[in-house]
Write a protein that binds this DNA or RNA. Sequence first.
DNA 1: TCAAACTTTCAAAAATAATTGAAATATATT
DNA 2: AATATATTTCAATTATTTTTGAAAGTTTGA
Lengths: 167, 167
Amino acid sequence: MDYSTAKNKFLQTWGALGSQWGINKTMAQIHALLMVSDEAISMEDIMQELQISRGNASMNLRALMDWGIVYKENKPGERREFFIAEKDLDELATKIAKERSKREIKPALKMLKEVSSIQANETPAEKHFVEQTKKLYDFVGRADEMIDKVTTYKDNWLGKLMIKLLK
Amino acid sequence: MDYSTAKNKFLQTWGALGSQWGINKTMAQIHALLMVSDEAISMEDIMQELQISRGNASMNLRALMDWGIVYKENKPGERREFFIAEKDLDELATKIAKERSKREIKPALKMLKEVSSIQANETPAEKHFVEQTKKLYDFVGRADEMIDKVTTYKDNWLGKLMIKLLK
DNA sequence: TCAAACTTTCAAAAATAATTGAAATATATT
DNA sequence: AATATATTTCAATTATTTTTGAAAGTTTGA
């Protein structure tokens, strides 16, 4: 397999993986492209490489910067903007985890807290509803916390020890 | 907030959360409905409660059973089928993790192995591509492994210790 | 074996999400 | 200030995903 084929395969598969996890395919692909590029890339080049429109490129680059995993880079003497990706994978994972937690998990937790706090009457149905949503609240809360801890401490000694122990 | 409002809010929000993580909204909602129900539910009742068609209910129940997180239950003297959800949340998380790993992560790993194995020439671009995809391969592989271990051992003493230590 | 009760399948329709492209806006240069 | 270059916005279009519903299939029991 040659470089160009490999690169295409990578961009293609990474985009599909993104989709499967609720991330816009183009967004995943732009990030993938920046990840494997040895230098900053202009919007023009991104459009060219992924065959996408200017609007699409602009919007998804904005989203990636909002996530904190892509940065602008200004080249001296160059008018247009260049982009680079966060390449430290631990840092990347941490940012993605924190962002998804904030945007998606935390609101779900809030809802679980609310609905599990209703005054249930004596029927089995209502009692069970409260019981289950309480359990779900505890569980999701713990999982969210754990992901946060695991990503935060991934590169320190404690984390390394744990990860080793888990092997 | 009364029971019916709370239940609706739960089903609604859980469905949205599913969507955000690449899971069919109805599939997430059927599972949610079964999770908080104190008894097995017929397809008819699921259709009724979520206001969905027979085909939709049938297909998504099939998918949930393929994931191994919903089971059929036969009531004596009853012709039609009833459904119950896996209610042990550790077990649920384990099954979801294993299934997503198998369907989505493993194929991505396979691709990363392939594309990072190309014979790169001396250009910085090709060298960097191989370097990055190799790193990605290692990282995704480790993450995949860790999720597997964490979920598998979640309810034994080792896991409990770790989780406590991570607090 | 037949018919009633129930479930599955899948092509067509509907709903949702992503993308385009051109006008508007912003920024830099002369 | 005027012009050129670059970026953003967003209504309209296109693509993708989900849902429907009726026909086909299956199972049970009379």
